[in-house]
């Protein structure tokens, strides 16, 4: 008799589907990565391996354009992520540590609103808003829009972490003569650190990734990496696009690794899993 798999977790074919899933997700990315090292003017014909297009990215005719866009992208992402993280940390403290208050459920809906409204709708609404109040679209409007939609992304890991920390630690601090502000600064904030870092990383990458909203509110002249790449692709995929895509891919992978590392750190110092018994 054939051996039967007694493990109830096992379903025939699930592993193959998982592998298929990974293949589908990775194949296009890997192909672009490979072709970014192609030393050929044509994106189709394979020549030899070279860093030619990376060089072109930094020193080619389009280099200044990419550089300005990269500076815009990163500076906006840093500022938007910092602002969103601060706002989200404050909001989480109010939501999870200040007891019940009127408008709490409305506040919850409000914080998550940017997640619920489709991006294109947010983009349209923001454009209309800025145009109606006569605000010139540009760098500042991009930043404001990014802060808004980064808030829920920062809030998610921060609130999850705060929920996992029993408020008994802050009570213990108060019991030991700490004022409420000291309890917040000396106890809650350090314990929250992994959640706050995750929130920041997520907000940063979300801001860096955004195309649709930026495209609407950027106005003339200000470009970010996604808008400049999109503009270039509209004229056809060139090898330097593959090089810049590969670089951005590397940044993303680096961020996932970083957020994993932070998560691990958080688990190690997890206050709720302190050892019991002798």
């Amino acid at each position: 008799m054939a051996t039967k798999n007694v493990d109830l977790r096992h379903f025939t074919g699930f592993k193959s589907l998982t592998l298929l899933c990974l293949f589908l997700l990775y194949a296009p990315l890997i192909i672009v990565m490979v072709y970014s090292f192609n030393d050929s003017n044509s994106i189709t014909r394979w020549n030899t391996v070279s860093l030619r297009w990376y060089y072109d990215l930094f020193y080619g005719v389009d280099a200044p354009k990419f550089k300005t866009a990269a500076i815009n992208s990163v500076s906006i992402a840093v500022m938007a992520a910092i602002s969103a993280t601060v706002i989200a940390t404050m909001a989480a403290t109010a939501m999870l540590r200040a007891g019940s208050f009127r408008g709490k459920s409305v506040s919850f809906a409000l914080i998550n609103l940017p997640l619920m409204v489709p991006e294109i709708v947010t983009a349209v609404a923001t454009l209309i808003f800025f145009s109606a109040i006569g605000f010139t679209t540009g760098y500042l409007t991009i930043l404001i829009a990014h802060i808004v939609f980064c808030i829920p992304f920062a809030y998610l890991p921060i609130a999850a972490r705060m929920q996992g920390i029993e408020d008994v630690y802050e009570q213990a601090a108060q019991d030991l003569y700490a004022t409420r502000f000291q309890a917040f600064r000396l106890i809650l904030l350090p314990l929250m650190a992994p959640g706050i870092i995750s929130g920041f990383l997520l907000a940063f990458i979300i801001s860096l990734d955004d195309f649709i909203i930026t495209n609407f509110v950027k106005g003339a002249g200000v470009e970010t990496l996604p808008t400049v790449i999109f503009g270039a692709v509209k004229q056809g995929i060139k090898p330097n696009i593959m090089a810049i895509s590969t670089l951005l891919l590397a940044v993303s992978v680096g961020f996932v690794a970083l957020s994993y590392f932070v998560g691990r750190m958080g688990e190690k110092a997890n206050p709720t899993t302190t050892k019991q018994g002798d």
Partner: peptide, 17 residues
């Protein structure tokens, strides 16, 4: 990882493929 990768880049990759 793909969850964190820029959507534009993923779409361009698919177009290229």
């Amino acid at each position: 990882i793909p969850y964190w990768v820029n959507l534009l880049i993923r779409t361009i990759s698919m177009k290229f493929l």
